[in-house]
Nucleic acid binder design. Structure first.
Lengths: 251, 251
DNA sequence: TCGAATTTGTGCGTATGTATC
DNA sequence: GGATACATACGCACAAATTCG
């Protein structure tokens, strides 16, 4: 057998001492220099051990401040199923209602944004065609839990009351109802979840560690004619949300 | 603005030279020492630049052999929807048939395995109760693309023809049909996808880089009485598979 | 078959940058 | 602004895997 590396041994020691409540969640650990001297290891060993525990979500590091025991934040359950589209209001509101939390969101829309190549491909339109782009930040009890960027071809809703997703009479009612307003029946969505890491901006917006694991969902809504009418990139941080796909079937 | 770190600059240079086909997919790059001297940077810079490109999936490294341009492997599309359960045969076979690939799998079942705490909780049974555990390796055209470990309470199927998932008359027919054999109507499944990294063993089995991104899906089937009858951990490597949840809804 | 040379992978200490107090 | 703390980048040494004579 291989002998374990010093920094791995020390990571195990730290993990154990945290489990034993030597430091409680939210509490600051001694500085690296202190820990190093106290435990008879070098500064570098401590750093690498802490890096590992940070990646595991056990610790969080704040530059200039210290290293803290991560507070076990309750994860918000997000259910994704066809039922979501049948209820009124947004699916996010329904999820939060089920958890007894207050659902709010902030959004910013830009009309007339030329579609980049990948978005154009997903929407089945020529690259550069104008789109309405909306970025969202979803909050549960005022704490951010999810991000999303939505793209709709401008040509579909131009001139109607629902051009802007978060303005007008159907604000916040979801793609299905808004598209019904312009005579389009949306019958299907495809969701493509892919794992990834939070970049600096995402980490900042969501209040999580940079590099933390996230699921990026590419969601596209299709009309009954099979035409893509909206596509979105949804960022779901693992530390804050639990995704559940509900798959129900008859006999 | 910040000036970019040397290893990031060199990573960009390497990326560009690869895009320019200086080395074609599958081809070996010069060794670190050669590249370092040739480009006037240190050995460490080259290594870190290559590490970054390996994480991005642009390169793959093989110890003792060299660093190679990653071959753009076609990703297998795995569709997850209620329809999967209505067709005969396994859902994996249906997915591969849609792609014109041959679906095969290897499995190994152990009866009478005591349920660990997390599995017991998911199945709603006491910890330590016996389960039938089956591990799978799924192959598309003989190349592994997915792993899975399935758990069923032994008490449900004990004494029947379908105790072992991959033996008997309904081998390979899926949970829904097998459970029907013992009088249980399975009507619902919940899937919980979570991002993660491949460990050494998974990377080995799947032929991917250690630490590569994967989606781990916790899937649980429920009977019409709401009882959990099977739960599985499915490992889906991002490099090899594309997951699509098909969400269809009426008006 | 075996061993030496080569190549990548891992671990570690130091120097420097940057945020916080 | 100074002191302190974590974050990033870097070079070196050694281990592990492979290759080849």
């Amino acid at each position: 057998m291989h002998e374990q590396a010093p920094y791995l041994r020390f990571a195990d020691e730290l993990r154990k001492r945290i489990e034993d409540q030597e430091w409680t969640p939210g509490e600051r650990l001694p500085s690296r220099a202190q820990l190093a001297e106290e435990c008879g290891v070098t500064d570098g060993i401590v750093r690498r051990a802490q890096e590992k525990l940070i990646a595991e979500g056990v610790l969080t590091g704040r530059a200039g401040s210290g290293t803290y025991v991560a507070e076990p934040r309750e994860r918000v359950r997000v259910v994704r199923s066809p039922e979501r589209e049948r209820t009124s209001g947004s699916a996010f509101e329904a999820d939060m209602a089920a958890l007894g939390k207050r659902a709010t969101w902030e959004s910013r829309s830009d009309a007339m944004v030329p579609a980049p190549a990948d978005i154009a491909a997903r929407l089945g339109i020529p690259e550069g065609d104008y789109c309405v782009r909306t970025t969202y930040e979803y909050l549960a009890n005022d704490k951010p839990v999810q991000l999303s960027t939505s793209w709709e071809p401008y040509s579909i809703t131009a001139g109607s009351l629902v051009v802007m997703p978060e303005a007008g009479p159907l604000a916040g009612e979801g793609v299905v109802r808004r598209m019904a307003e312009v005579g389009i029946k949306v019958t299907r969505a495809a969701e493509r979840p892919e794992p990834g890491h939070a970049d600096a901006e995402e980490a900042n917006l969501l209040g999580i560690q940079k590099g933390a694991l996230v699921t990026r969902i590419q969601r596209t809504y299709y009309s009954d004619g099979g035409r893509a009418v909206e596509t979105a990139d949804i960022v779901v941080p693992t530390a804050l949300c639990e995704i559940v796909y509900d798959v129900s079937f008859g006999s």
